[in-house]
């Protein structure tokens, strides 16, 4: 892994560094096709199916954000439900003031990004495990604070206004498209961020924080950006949740279960890869759909699977694929090629 800095290696024409062995344009095109096909779903499938997919979009968005935090920035948050709840409540507040919930969603998400700044100032004082628990306490405090407002329904919540007079079929379709758009935007944002300068800083921090700091990497700023982006993403998912449930209930939107689901989906799929959360979300949805009639069993099994994967397959299901096929659909690392077909390419970054 030290090749990048080892100056004794002669730089010759035989070496070159690429992002990936495959052409990224193809996976980009593939992703676009998937999004377009998914966008056509409301015309071809029943509303029951789109409702399940909206749930999947929420989990996938959350998992991508948690993956960005824990997998790349080393920020293990157990309090992301705070942003899910805030996003839902911001949509509710704007809708109560007459805005369409669909139009309110981006405003609410950005608003939560602004709220994330002072919250970061609070929780950034703690590291690792205590950072995790501080975010959790913060989420609990935010919920208690919001429950104080009787105009927002206090401890019981309110139905989401702004849908009166709309065709129910249209609402379902719009909800689906909004969920799809949020997920696509979240994943694109993670990909672009990690391909850019931020990705380099985060890699440097992951490999050696002290060395990164002494080389002038602005570690605190990088973590702040990740925290704010994850706040915006989780808030957007919370907004989609509010719209799809047509109501906002404090204990439901601020449930720690959201964080458990996003963390477990990420861990099962593969932490620190963009593909991981997709696989993890698929596993989660299959478990949830097949075990839905057995009450809490899917959560028990999800927890057990997450423990087993965390202990025995640290890189998750996608890690198993990657080990065998060296396949990256969304490459954010680098490959070093040594001449034409001269051995296997080495990954400079996992």
């Amino acid at each position: 892994m030290s090749l990048a800095t080892d100056t004794s290696v002669p730089i010759s024409a035989d070496f070159h560094v690429t992002r990936s062995r495959q052409n990224v344009a193809w996976t980009g095109l593939g992703a676009l096709v998937v999004v377009v096909v998914l966008a056509l779903f409301p015309y071809i499938v029943y509303s029951g199916t789109t409702a399940i997919l909206v749930q999947a979009f929420i989990v996938l968005t959350l998992a991508s954000m948690w993956n960005l935090m824990a997998g790349y920035a080393g920020l293990v948050s157990v309090g992301q439900q705070g942003f899910v709840g805030l996003g839902a409540y911001f949509v509710l507040i704007l809708a109560l003031h007459g805005l369409s919930p669909f139009a309110a969603l981006p405003v609410a998400a950005i608003g939560c990004g602004v709220v994330a700044l002072p919250l970061w100032w609070l929780v950034s004082r703690l590291r690792s495990g205590y950072f995790a628990i501080a975010t959790w306490v913060l989420a609990a405090a935010i919920m208690l604070f919001i429950e104080r407002f009787q105009s927002l329904g206090g401890g019981t919540g309110l139905p989401l206004p702004g849908f009166t007079g709309m065709n129910p079929t249209l609402i379902t379709a719009y909800t689906y498209w909004v969920g799809l758009a949020v997920t696509a935007a979240a994943m694109l944002a993670v990909y672009v961020l990690l391909r850019g300068r931020l990705g380099l800083v985060l890699t440097a921090v992951r490999d050696d924080e002290v060395a990164a700091r002494s080389s002038g990497a602005r570690v605190g700023l990088a973590r702040l950006i990740v925290f704010v982006v994850a706040g915006i993403g989780c808030a957007a998912a919370g907004g989609v949740l509010a719209i799809s449930q047509l109501q906002v209930q404090p204990t439901a939107v601020f449930s720690v279960q959201w964080t458990a689901e996003m963390a477990f989906a990420t861990i099962i799929g593969g932490l620190g890869t963009i593909e991981g959360p997709i696989i993890g979300t698929a596993v989660y949805m299959v478990l949830q759909q097949t075990l839905a009639s057995y009450n809490a069993w899917y959560l028990i099994i999800l927890g057990l699977v997450a423990i087993v994967v965390a202990l025995f397959a640290r890189r998750g299901l996608w890690g198993l694929v990657d080990e065998r096929l060296h396949l990256r659909l969304f490459p954010v690392g680098y490959w070093l090629r040594t001449g034409a077909g001269n051995g296997r390419p080495r990954s400079l970054r996992n």
């Binding site: 824990a70 293990v76 963390a263 999800l302 927890g303």
Partner: peptide, 17 residues
Amino acid sequence: VLTTLIVTLGLSMVIEN
């Protein structure tokens, strides 16, 4: 550290549910 957090969070979810 991440693994201990995930494992204890998993335990918590399994016990609670």
